[in-house]
């Protein structure tokens, strides 16, 4: 039997960052816009890997880092993202409500908002900050949700 000490060669020496050939999932639509002087680019996709969890759509947004020192700043951003999501899905009246937040490691934080449509829970938006800078926004929309008129 082969054995190793508690720690082998330094894995930090491993080569360069792997670059997926397809850096973005296949997207149904994409949009980019400037709101409040701030560049945001979003993709809507339906990742097969999330189907077992009952997730139909992912709306992922990349943007320039933005300082988030107050939760109110994030509420404003969450509303903007939900408006973009509404436009992309052609669904009016999506509303986001802050749910909770948690630390990831020591520098990252994950803020979660529940997404409601006409009072019904339809998904979740998550916002990732690194050292209090917002770096990623991502919303999930559940399967089995039908939007009237969409």
């Amino acid at each position: 039997m082969r054995g190793f000490g508690p720690r082998g060669k330094n894995p930090r020496d491993r080569g360069s960052n792997p670059r997926p050939a397809t850096t973005q999932p296949p997207y149904l639509t994409s949009l980019s816009y400037k709101e409040v002087g701030w560049f945001v680019e979003c993709w809507l996709s339906s990742p097969e890997a999330l189907a077992p969890k009952g997730i139909k759509f992912i709306f992922m947004c990349s943007h320039e880092p933005k300082d988030i020192y107050f939760i109110e700043d994030l509420h404003e951003h969450a509303s903007l993202i939900s408006e973009s999501l509404s436009r992309t899905l052609s669904v009016g009246g999506l509303r986001v409500v802050f749910s909770d937040n948690e630390v990831i490691g020591s520098d990252y934080m994950l803020y979660s908002y529940k997404v409601f449509h006409e009072g019904d829970y339809v998904g979740t938006c998550r916002f990732v900050t690194y050292c209090n800078k917002l770096i990623k926004s991502l919303c999930t929309i559940s399967s089995g949700i039908t939007f009237e008129g969409s």
């Binding site: 050939a21 397809t22 990742p47 890997a49 999330l50 992912i58 991502l138 999930t140």
Partner: peptide, 11 residues
Amino acid sequence: EYKDGYWEALG
């Protein structure tokens, strides 16, 4: 070919 898994699809 690269394809996201569960958590990779979530960022």
